[in-house]
């Protein structure tokens, strides 16, 4: 029988984020395929609730490393604890979310164990008794599948939203508390403060993104997109050209050198659809393109295309949504 499937439960200071349990859904499928158990693992201070809640999302067992030293997220400390657990139990596969936190832990833990990992995975399947991990390469023009033959466990970071959140059930998990002693003096980093950004954008978690490019013409265009995004409960994204024009900060950039996003709806306004932009959004579920050039490459990637001036189309959409959604 194959070993268990493990999912890392991400949190910020013990708080459950809606997406913390996202990977338990695909984890469950893989565990069923292997005929093994789905387990979760969590590292932190005061993470009892998280550990319990993981059971409701399908984990049979939850391994928890707790300690004051883990109060603030510090990649180095978390990775040491993760490497300790993974080395002790050697699950078949360990899945992390491809967020800044998840990637920090996964990469450093894998390196401590002495092997590589697959990052930003968008497909996981069992093949020949191993988990085959697929990731996009070169702007999503290619998909490359890798197997980590020498690694135990195989480690993958998985693109947020690549898999649906599992349903919350009534299950409970057995919580296994593991002691892993780490002195604060042995951790070389210290979080001094956290500055929540006023324009805090969490593009990676957003279900709806309204994005703008050079075609917006100016900063005011983004105010219009913000209005639409607010109405839909979405976030605002941008092309590099718009960021380089200083109409919007870099943290909004989508694409090869920006964020990779996979929202349910991506509305691209005044974006031509360069390969580097597509690299960051082409796996979105539904893409709407609004562009005045009927030959713009973005239309080839779009689910729905509207040929027109965004300055006319977007206000009209806002007006219609207002009526239909009663907002």
């Amino acid at each position: 029988m194959a070993n268990d499937v493990w999912v890392y439960i991400e949190h910020k200071e013990g708080a459950i984020s809606p997406m913390s349990f996202e990977l338990l859904g695909i984890g469950k499928e893989l565990a069923a395929g292997f005929g093994s158990n789905l387990c979760a693992f969590v590292i932190g201070a005061g993470v009892d609730d998280l550990a319990k809640e993981a059971g409701a999302y399908g984990a049979a067992k939850v391994y928890a490393v707790e300690g004051d030293v883990f109060k603030d997220f510090r990649g180095e400390a978390y990775a040491k604890a993760a490497a300790f657990l993974l080395d002790k139990y050697k699950p078949e596969v360990a899945l992390f979310r491809a967020t800044t936190m998840g990637t920090d832990v996964a990469a450093a833990a894998a390196a401590q164990l002495g092997f590589g990992l697959c990052t930003d995975t968008i497909g996981l399947a069992i093949d020949g008794g191993k988990v085959k991990m697929a990731r996009a390469a070169f702007g999503g023009n290619f998909s490359v599948s890798v197997v980590n033959e020498k690694a135990a466990p195989q480690i993958a970071t998985v693109r947020p939203k690549a898999y649906a959140m599992p349903e919350k059930g009534a299950g409970t998990a057995e919580v296994v508390k593991e002691s892993f002693a780490l002195a604060d003096a042995d951790v070389a980093t210290k979080v001094v403060e956290f500055l929540a950004s006023a324009s805090a954008v969490n593009l990676v978690e957003a279900d709806i993104i309204v994005s703008g490019g050079r075609g917006l013409g100016n900063e005011a265009g983004f105010a219009m997109l913000q209005q639409l995004a607010d109405m839909l409960g979405g976030a605002v994204g941008a092309s590099r050209a718009a960021v380089d024009s200083e109409w919007i900060p870099y943290e909004h950039q989508v694409g090869q050198t920006g964020k990779t996003v996979k929202p349910k709806i991506y509305i691209a306004c005044g974006i031509s659809g360069a390969i580097q932009h597509l690299a960051g959004m082409r796996t979105s579920d539904c893409i709407v393109a609004i562009n005045k050039d009927p030959d713009a490459p973005i239309f080839k990637a779009a689910t729905f295309g509207i040929v027109g001036d965004y300055k006319e189309v977007v206000p009209k959409m806002i007006e219609k949504f207002k009526g239909k959604l009663g907002r």
């Binding site: 290619f142 890798v146 690694a151 082409r282 509207i306 009209k316």
Partner: peptide, 25 residues
């Protein structure tokens, strides 16, 4: 290398989308 490429594929194109035609309204 522990990670081995076992498959390179060209993902199916997204499928030509639908261009919505007509008056703005």
């Amino acid at each position: 290398a522990s990670t081995k490429v076992v498959e390179i594929a060209v993902p199916p194109p997204r499928g030509a989308g639908e261009i919505l035609k007509g008056e703005l309204e």
